[in-house]
Amino acid sequence: MIKNKQTKLERHYATLGMMLIAPTVLVFCAVIVYPLVSAIYLSLFDIYTPTLQGEWVGLDNYRELLGKGEFWASLRTNLIWTVGTLSLQILFGIGMALVLHQNIWFRSLARSLILFPYFISTVVAVLVWRWLFNDLYGILNHLMMAAGLIDMPVDYLGSMPNAMISVILVGAWKYFPFVVIAVLARLQTIPDSLYEAARIDGAGPVARFFDITLPQLRDVLVVIIMLRAIWDFKEFDLIFLLTGGGPVTSTQTLPLLVYKEAFSLNNMGMAAAYAVAMMAVMLVFMILYIRKTGEKDA
């Protein structure tokens, strides 16, 4: 058995490494680990927000939450939103990436225009869309009526299922550029020789897409889907600002429920319980993603 004796130099380097990471670790503990742990701890209390006074209630919050319809309804809404907007993002994102991969006129300008929705503030996106959606003077109603698609102005955000559809569409519009850029980057690394070989073998454009492009994109798509699923699931700003969860609670996803419980209904403890429950649901995706990333690193 060889004794593993560290040299002085090795110890010196290790110390230096730990000193460099120390600020990160300190900040992490203060603003992430500590709040995370106390979120779980708070969920065992009944706390009134304005006074911040509370009493220990154990698992009562969770018992109430699982028994109450609102949690399950919000979870359902959350899933509908996530699946809806994610599928549109992916479909539209891949399509747009394929188009931009071609040599179209002013390609870099087109790419910038496509990218822009992703980088603007959600606040800006929401303001613009609320103006487009405006029932009296919104351009959208006007265009649709002019095209003969509808007879009466549509209430896009105030009734169901319109509100959900609108939210999903705006979400897709705002976040599909992420998919475009990611897919585009991958497309550029597929060697031309693969397509040449397929062409020699007599594959048409459709066959080339399904036999070459799609398999090559598979890995990156898996990562994108997981990442976007996690991010869409926890989306707050967009939905909160567009509909506020309404009409009534029909677009109230879990993050909105947490916010409402904590800052409108003033039940901090209950809100924490909702947040922890939501995290538990997300944990599945998160672990999947982390494992996938770990695999790639190895």
Partner: peptide
Amino acid sequence: AGLEFPSS
């Protein structure tokens, strides 16, 4: 070179 450290 001193870029790796002998275990012993």
